[in-house]
């Protein structure tokens, strides 16, 4: 298992949870599927406005940055009025959204592929 993998996943969840709550989502479902080679984090909220979706998609689909795995990730979840979506974007492989019955499912993938081969 990679270094601090569990802690990084928890930090990502914490930061996203704060981001959603600051955006007035007060009923949030969360699910994490922690597999051997990948973590899949899912948030489900009601009626997510397009601005929130586009901000999350823009930040979390910019591409993984391996040089940030060893540093800066500790900043996630540290500030209560500034979002650090850009750091999450460097640590995850992407996000996609599914809409069903007025509910929005946000699915985030983080592969554990940065281990030395």
């Amino acid at each position: 298992m990679a270094l601090h993998e569990i802690k990084k996943n928890c930090k990502i969840v914490n930061e996203l949870l704060m981001y959603l709550m600051r955006n007035s989502f007060h009923q949030i479902e969360m699910h994490i599927d922690y597999q051997t080679d990948e973590s899949v984090i899912t948030f489900i909220v009601d009626e997510c406005p397009s601005e929130v979706i586009s901000q999350m998609a823009e930040n979390l689909n910019k591409g993984r940055r391996y040089e940030f795995e060893g540093y800066y990730w500790e900043l996630m979840g540290e500030s209560d009025n500034t979002n650090q979506l850009s750091i999450i974007g460097m640590l995850v492989d992407g996000i996609h959204f599914e809409e069903k019955n007025g509910r929005t499912k946000m699915i985030i993938h983080r592969k554990h592929t940065f281990l030395k081969k």
Binding site: L3, Y66, E67, E69, G70, Y71, F114, L115, K116
Partner: peptide, 10 residues
């Protein structure tokens, strides 16, 4: 056992 790229900034 981590990739050296992970600590390049450091």
């Amino acid at each position: 056992k981590i990739d050296i790229r992970n600590v390049m900034i450091i």
